[in-house]
Write a protein that binds this DNA or RNA. Structure first.
Lengths: 207, 207
DNA sequence: TTTATAAATTAACAATGTTAACTTAACGAC
DNA sequence: GTCGTTAAGTTAACATTGTTAATTTATAAA
């Protein structure tokens, strides 16, 4: 029974409800549990209704992803206020890792699952906007440090430095997520691994 | 028409045929193309036959994965013969990366896809055996360098060092595989990214 | 009151992983 | 040689998936 004509606000509300339902399933039971029918059942709609709000499953996942990128950027925004430059870099490192381990399923979807390249028309995120884009935040900090001459002179491309820093944390996080439960590897504590990476890579890059 | 009683060799042959068929589909069309029916059709068997050789799809994938771990270890074995220690470490770095980009789908399955922890009873690979286990090879080299006192004294756990090195390359490789085609990131060349990581992390760790 | 349309639903399609039931042919025992 | 037994396969079926077409329902406008 369709109570007709939804105001734009109501439409948006249902859109968010769908995303929330998907997120719940996703977080609780992993990506393989996210079926269109299950998402719909959880909010008492039929599966077809979802297709009036998202073109297909990929589009829905992409939208989820967008929201998560925003969440990450928001989480890091506080950190960006730390005055001391090096302290800020360390805090960014840790903040990023914390996000990864608090939301491993989101992290997987965002950074470990190849998907059709982000459609710049479709996505809500303004890439490069420091408010919304975590990578832009990282670049900002790195540029500041670069400008202050903190890096060894051989590292002379600040974008390359930023990506190296990113890859180093991402390496630790994603190995933990995929292989962290393998018993044939003697993992030291996650904290030690993160600290070691942090110290090693920064000592390598900084003067 | 079942020509009866297969010798153990013949059974093994079909097992390998199935794995090969799966691998082909996998490499050509990505992981989502690997359906039991397709694998079977390609070698003119019915899908059910596959279940006489593998418990389920996961087991088949796991077996594929095992074979790929062996392939990686084999590829690195030549490198392990390089006499100079540092040259060997650099070559390991590059050999690993080369494997990742020559077989991105395999790499994804091996290191970027969470799966049920490797069943030590089921798997063919002898973990810790340098002949078969790439991680064991890395540990060996790192231990040698550790023993020779090449690392800064603050890095005093050679397993932790090995994992840090691993995570650093893996970070570059897996970011490339998942996000390498995103246009909103200005990627320098892959080679530069790999070299930068290599230089930075080794400078950080080495005396 | 009629009509057009937004919002939702039911029914159906083809593809998937997987299992049960059945067929066929070769081997060992007599 | 004939007769079970059993390995090696197949076909048929089930439940679940993403997705689309056809249909219903209730409201807003005429």
């Amino acid at each position: 029974m369709p109570p007709k004509i939804k105001s734009p606000e109501e439409r948006e509300k249902l859109r968010l409800l769908i995303l929330d339902s998907a997120r719940t399933l996703f977080v609780e039971r992993g990506i393989e549990a996210v079926s269109m029918r299950e998402i719909a059942k959880q909010i008492n709609y039929s599966a077809t209704t979802l297709y009036h709000y998202f073109a297909d499953k990929d589009a829905l996942l992409q939208a989820l992803c967008d929201a998560d990128f925003l969440a990450l950027a928001n989480g890091l925004r506080e950190i960006m206020k730390i005055p001391d430059l090096l302290a800020r870099i360390h805090a960014l490192f840790n903040g990023y890792a914390q996000f990864a381990f608090q939301h491993p399923n989101h992290y997987r979807l965002m950074f470990m699952t190849p998907r059709t390249p982000c459609n710049l028309e479709t996505t809500q995120i303004q890439q490069g906007n420091t408010e919304q884009d975590a990578y832009a935040q990282l670049k900002l900090v790195v540029f500041e440090a670069f400008d202050a001459g903190l890096f060894k002179p051989e590292f002379n491309d600040f974008e390359l430095i930023a990506q190296t820093l990113w890859a180093s944390i991402h390496g630790v996080c994603s190995l933990e997520i995929t292989l962290g439960h393998e018993t044939w590897i003697q993992w030291p504590s996650l904290e030690m691994r993160l600290n070691t990476m942090q110290n090693a890579i920064l000592q390598g890059l900084l003067r």
